[in-house]
Nucleic acid binder design. Structure first.
Lengths: 131, 131
DNA sequence: GGTTGACCTCAACAAATGTTGAGGTTCTAC
DNA sequence: GTAGAACCTCAACATTTGTTGAGGTCAACC
């Protein structure tokens, strides 16, 4: 059974160039993420990387997570919950997504709290600006 | 870090040490933020910094914003909307808070969108976004 | 079986975000 | 008026998150 989205989970293997082109993430960044353990690849006999489709998900998630303030280390911890090998199930992704959403939302809530507390006493008399 | 909202906007001037202690932000970081233009201070005749109370708000905001993925440059742009001198009004802070909340929420929404799209429905018609 | 573009590793660099330390000055309390 | 804590500047270092380049290998096509 192959649930075909834009890519195929069971393609023989995407080269790093193909992944870079499809995902919009630079090959150098992809190698970097791999060195950090956020993604993984098979290697050909000649030592070239071959990726499976789930790398696209991982890359998209990494980018989005970074935008909400998660470090690569934190994203890595989250991704570590996925099965390391090939194709995480939908449930895997859903659980991960829930975790990340929760974490991100809690940060927003912290920000909101800080913002609320910032301007303490409005008071009918505005602060005398002659400090 | 303590978010001490009980200070007086019109204290004659807090030393950097006092600000550091009250805010929980290291003096070195405070100097760094000042060098980046995120906060400002008066100077004594002997060239020492003296801060007004609004610096506490700025610091709290900076920290919270960083947690949701804003860079210092972005926080700086937002803070630039505040009156540069002494005590921003409540309206100033409210407007700023609204901007930041909106920005942060939009990033969360982006993340949520990515997460939703990650695990496409296996059963019904999957989205066929061209690669 | 050569050519050529894509790929490999490794190291150096870069920008953002600070921290640490040296060397000197100011402030405050006695 | 002086001792010591707190402050000043400036430069070097540290960490994260990558990019760039050198020098060499692989793979795909003719």
């Amino acid at each position: 059974m192959r649930h075909d989205t834009s890519f195929d989970w069971h393609e023989p293997g995407l080269t790093i160039g193909q992944v870079a082109q499809r995902s919009g993430v630079a090959a150098s960044a992809i190698r970097f993420y791999e060195a950090q353990g956020l993604i993984s690849s098979d290697r050909t006999a000649g030592n070239q990387r071959r990726y499976h489709g789930d790398v696209m998900c991982r890359l998209a998630m990494i980018e989005a997570c970074q935008r909400v303030g998660l470090t690569l280390a934190e994203v890595g911890q989250a991704l570590a919950a996925l099965p390391p090998g090939q194709a995480p199930t939908r449930q895997d992704w859903d659980a991960l997504a829930e975790r990340l959403r929760t974490e991100a939302q809690s940060r927003i809530d912290q920000l909101s709290q800080v913002l609320r507390d910032l301007a303490p006493a409005p008071e009918p008399g505005p602060p005398r600006s002659g400090a």
